[in-house]
């Protein structure tokens, strides 16, 4: 029997961003964050800063996430002292560092921002509760910022995402480039940024698509390190 010989070494012992298959390149720098390999830089800091002004795309799939749904989901959140949005399809911050997205009336997606620990705390709860169903999350997640962000969305999404239509705490569940995605608008360092979540198995496709358009518009990939600054 012939032996299979790998063309290059692939680290299989660490989790890796679902967008990683589309992020190859000699200049890419990697680091492990939240137990997941993530691209921290795609180019020099100066280049990435310039990209961010026009259209920067950052992979933040490594942020911890937690999902749950069910008729008792809102009560369960309250029982765990979780701040939740009062209306469907909106988001809020819990403990200042964790995003809480209410997807429809009875489903929630939580994501710890840098420094957030809500997801980690909830993940340790194993008891099943009637009317509350855990939704395992394996999203690819991205941040878009820069002056041309809406130009990119104009090609990917049929919904109006301008600030006049996508209000500060709105959650949009829509199709981006033909696949289901969640979009919100946040403020980071005083600048508006857009957040995108999609099924992780579409992560590489979404990354390729975002970068292809971003480059055409004068932006490009930005590593997580630049976003953290």
């Amino acid at each position: 029997m012939q032996a299979l010989t790998p063309n290059k070494a692939v680290k299989l012992d660490a989790k890796i961003s679902p967008a990683a298959p589309a992020q190859s390149g000699a200049n890419v720098k990697w680091a492990v964050m939240n137990d997941m390999q993530i691209a921290t830089a795609f180019a020099s800091a100066e280049v990435e800063q310039a990209r961010q002004k026009v259209l920067g795309v950052t992979d933040v799939s490594c942020f911890p996430r937690y999902g749950f749904k069910g008729p008792q989901a809102a009560q369960w959140a309250a029982d765990h002292e979780l701040a939740i949005p009062s209306s469907p399809n909106s988001w809020t911050l819990s403990d200042q560092k964790s995003l809480v997205l209410r997807l429809g009336g009875s489903e929630f997606l939580l994501e710890d921002q840098i420094g957030g620990i809500v997801c980690e705390k909830l993940s340790s709860i194993s008891a099943r509760v009637a009317g509350v169903y855990k939704v395992p999350r394996a999203d690819a997640a991205f941040i878009l910022n820069g002056s041309a962000a809406l130009n990119l969305f104009a090609e990917l999404c049929s919904l109006d995402l301008r600030p006049s239509a996508l209000l500060a705490n709105d959650v949009i569940m829509t199709q981006l480039a033909g696949i289901s995605a969640i979009v919100i608008r946040q403020t980071h360092n005083g600048e508006p940024v857009y957040r995108i979540w999609c099924d992780g198995t579409y992560g590489a496709y979404m990354w390729e698509t975002l970068i292809e358009i971003a480059v055409e518009l004068g932006g490009g990939a930005v590593g997580l390190a630049s976003y953290q600054q």
């Binding site: 299979l4 010989t5 790998p6 063309n7 290059k8 692939v10 299989l12 890796i16 679902p18 990683a20 298959p21 090609e155 480039a177 033909g178 696949i179 099924d199 992780g200 198995t201 579409y202 992560g203 590489a204 496709y205 698509t209 292809e212 358009i213």
Partner: peptide, 20 residues
């Protein structure tokens, strides 16, 4: 248009590609 062809990859996709 741009011709979006969405596709899903498993987490082993790169391994598969690297192994022929």
């Amino acid at each position: 248009g741009r011709g979006f062809h969405s596709h899903r990859l498993t987490s082993l996709h790169q391994w598969h590609a690297d192994h022929g």
